Amino acid sequence: MAVSEAGIQPATVAAAAAPRRKPRTGLRVILPAIWVALVAVLVVAADFLPVPSPTHMDFDAAEARPSLAHPLGADLDGRDILSRLAHGARVSVIVSVAAPLIGLVFGTFFGLIASFYGGVPRMAILGVLDAMLAFPSLIFALGLTTVLGPTLLNVTLALGIMSVPAFARIARANAIVLLNREFVLASRTAGAGDLYVMFREILPNMAMSLVTYALTVMSIMIVAEGSLSFLGVGIPPPTPSWGSMIAEGREALERAPHVCLIPAFAMFLTVLSLNLLGDALRQKTEAKEGGLS
Score class of each variant (00 low, 15 high):
2 A>D: 11
3 V>E: 06
8 I>A: 08
8 I>F: 14
9 Q>R: 14
10 P>E: 07
18 A>C: 03
20 R>N: 06
30 I>Y: 14
31 L>Y: 13
32 P>K: 10
33 A>S: 15
45 A>P: 01
50 P>M: 08
67 S>G: 10
70 H>R: 11
72 L>R: 00
76 L>A: 14
82 L>I: 01
84 R>W: 05
85 L>W: 04
86 A>L: 03
94 I>D: 01
97 V>N: 02
97 V>S: 07
119 G>E: 03
120 V>N: 04
129 L>A: 05
134 A>F: 12
135 F>S: 04
141 A>T: 06
142 L>C: 04
142 L>F: 15
145 T>Q: 04
148 L>G: 04
148 L>F: 11
153 L>P: 02
154 N>G: 05
166 A>G: 10
166 A>I: 10
168 A>Y: 04
168 A>M: 07
171 A>M: 09
182 E>M: 10
186 A>K: 12
187 S>V: 01
190 A>L: 15
190 A>V: 12
199 F>C: 09
200 R>P: 04
202 I>Y: 02
203 L>N: 03
204 P>K: 10
207 A>N: 02
208 M>G: 08
212 T>I: 13
233 V>R: 01
237 P>F: 10
241 S>T: 07
241 S>P: 06
242 W>Q: 03
251 E>T: 13
251 E>D: 15
255 R>Q: 11
258 H>I: 00
264 A>T: 05
267 M>T: 09
267 M>W: 00
270 T>L: 15
272 L>Y: 09
277 L>G: 00
279 D>P: 01
284 K>S: 14
287 A>W: 06
290 G>V: 14
291 G>N: 12
292 L>V: 14
